[in-house]
């Protein structure tokens, strides 16, 4: 399939992935792209060193309607091609809140955050209440990746 016949959401994503903001993160070692299988994209985000913990976590995003519709995404196990098991998820005050595993309606496939479609769907006030962090169509995937990278490299990230 050539870029001329790609749907606009996929085309917008590929354009963002070729941009300086995303590629700068790749060069800095903050994240790396695992090939896109539309409408899904997987990105491995680096995490600070912690004992017995991985150096990165894979996020699997569903991107239909991007960027007009907010992405949704969660931690993914590429070996089993399924959501990452609870005992292998990042711990810490903010990491545990972002990647909730306590039965939240968004489930294991979404982030508890206003940049995630499921987070916004569950909280109609978040777009306004947390406007600095909320998704809007001017954002791109690097906006979310930067947030995740910050959480996984903060002092309060405890590993798995």
């Amino acid at each position: 399939m050539t870029s001329a016949v790609l749907p606009p959401d996929e085309r917008a994503l590929l354009e963002h992935l070729r941009g300086g903001r995303f590629l700068s993160g790749v060069v800095e070692g903050h994240w790396r792209l695992i090939p896109v299988t539309w409408p899904f994209a997987m990105v491995a985000v680096s995490a600070a060193k912690r004992p017995n913990s991985p150096s990165e976590f894979v996020l699997r995003f569903e991107l239909n309607g991007y960027p007009h519709v907010a992405p949704t995404g969660g931690l993914w196990d590429i070996e089993t091609d399924s959501s990452l098991a609870v005992d292998r998820r990042p711990k810490g005050e903010r990491a545990a809140l972002l990647f909730r595993s306590d039965g939240w309606d968004g489930g294991s496939g979404a982030m508890y955050a206003p940049w995630d479609r499921m987070g916004l769907k569950a909280h109609s006030d978040w777009a306004q209440k947390y406007s600095h962090d909320a998704w809007n169509p001017t954002r791109d995937l690097s906006f979310i990746l930067t947030k995740i990278y910050e959480v996984l490299n903060a002092d309060d990230y405890l590993g798995i």
Binding site: R94, L97, Y112, A113, P114, G119, H123, D125, W126, K129, Y130, H132, D133
Partner: peptide
């Protein structure tokens, strides 16, 4: 200089 948001609700 602002406080970082903590998502609640």
């Amino acid at each position: 200089l602002l406080p970082r948001s903590r998502f609640e609700g």
